[in-house]
Amino acid sequence: MTDELLLEVRNLTQYFERPVSWLERVFGGKQQKSRVVHAVNGVSFAVRRGEVFGLVGESGCGKSTTARTVVGLLPPKGGEILFASKDITGLSGAKLTPLRRKIQMVFQNPYASLDPRQRIEDILTEPILFHESVSRADARERAMALLDKIGLHRDQARRYPHQFSGGQRQRIAIARALATGPELVVADEPVSALDVSVQAQILNLMMDLKDEFDLSYLFIAHDLSVVRHVADRLAVMYLGFVVESGSSEEVFERPLHPYTVALLDAAPSLAKKSKSVPLTGDAPSPVNLPPGCPFASRCPKSRPECETERPTLREVSESSGRLLACHQQ
């Protein structure tokens, strides 16, 4: 790992507007205004070359939206995205194409992310042929080499996705991501649809491939033990905000934000039979963001200023690069 920043995300904002439907226009009294879902609210983080950066949080916290915005599937509504020090914010069309080669994505559900009507060899050669001017035979040879790397047999190349198990399909999805020779792989919950024993296989494979192909990962997961295992550094998200970030060792050993503490407490583990009091309530709606700290409504340590003033993400110790957004510290 070097200190060179491969991906830098600054103040990223993403929201979705839900227009008023005709039914509401005709019948609805109070819902005449369009509703805005604030999915990502000024998120900043950086992925260094060669590291695994984890993005953790519960559903609805904006981690997948962040990932989709970073890879260019959604145009950002605000903020900047820098890749290898080049501003790539809001690039589209032909300008985005060369970047897609360098930033690839692995999705959560390998049953949905592979085209059921394409053979495996076509799934793997298509990105190569699209991005590079090589002959079909060369592309095919490279696809076959990828199959070796992910632990599938070359004679399985003419099969269709439905002939493979979930774990094998996720291997294929990973191979497809690697086909273009990316530098950054954005993996959105790559193992959460898989059984535990298969999950271990895929995590091991991803770590092996990272070393072999000099990859960096933006690794998104809700499972803390998985993130702890793979990530060098991580950011914890809540309601579209980063509430805490730092090296994964430090965050797990000494969580500072009350939400991180609660999240770690809530995770079931074999070791502890803890009976700590779980968090009450649910996360607030991203349609009506609370004016103060996003976590104030569920925070056991909440004080009056937490309800009114939104804490900013700031450094808590210079040496470790630990960031925290909380009024308490």
């Binding site: 271990a200 995590l203 295992h229």
Partner: peptide, 24 residues
């Protein structure tokens, strides 16, 4: 034992996870 070992745990943070070879 395979199931327990393949769970990422706090005790063994980095390195390879023990995996059960093959599939169900």
């Amino acid at each position: 034992r395979g199931l327990l070992n393949s769970m990422p745990s706090a005790a063994q943070t980095k390195g390879r996870l023990a995996q059960i070879p093959g599939v169900v």
